[in-house]
């Protein structure tokens, strides 16, 4: 059967979406990554699965931020090397959903 070409998918940058979400950012990070363990990780699942796009490999090094974390926990479940230490932020801090 002949396939009709699809319209290319336009994706909205994640930062724009996160602007709609309310965060109360604690000074203490609630995510810790053992970046040593990330060296040589080819799969880098965290980079793809994080719904806030918080993980990134830059120049072969793992970089991450915790400020816009949606607190789902997907990253530590996906990490096969168990390099991600993940906890909830302090009570009253972190993300607050309002319209979901």
């Amino acid at each position: 059967m002949q396939q009709i070409a699809s319209e290319p998918v336009v994706t909205q940058p994640i930062e724009e979406r996160l602007e709609l979400v309310r965060f109360k950012v604690d000074k203490r990070p609630h995510i810790r990554v053992n970046t040593e363990a990330c060296r040589g990780c080819d799969l880098t699942p965290c980079v793809y699965v994080c719904p806030a796009g918080l993980f990134e490999i830059l120049g072969g090094e793992m970089h991450f931020s915790y400020e816009h974390c949606l607190e789902c926990g997907t990253c530590y479940v996906a990490c096969e090397r168990k390099a991600i230490e993940w906890d909830y932020p302090r009570g009253g801090w972190g993300v607050s959903f309002r319209a979901s």
């Binding site: 719904p51 926990g73 997907t74 479940v77």
Partner: peptide, 9 residues
């Protein structure tokens, strides 16, 4: 109009 984006496991 998108009001909020959210995620959960």
């Amino acid at each position: 109009v998108t009001l909020e984006y959210s995620a959960h496991m």
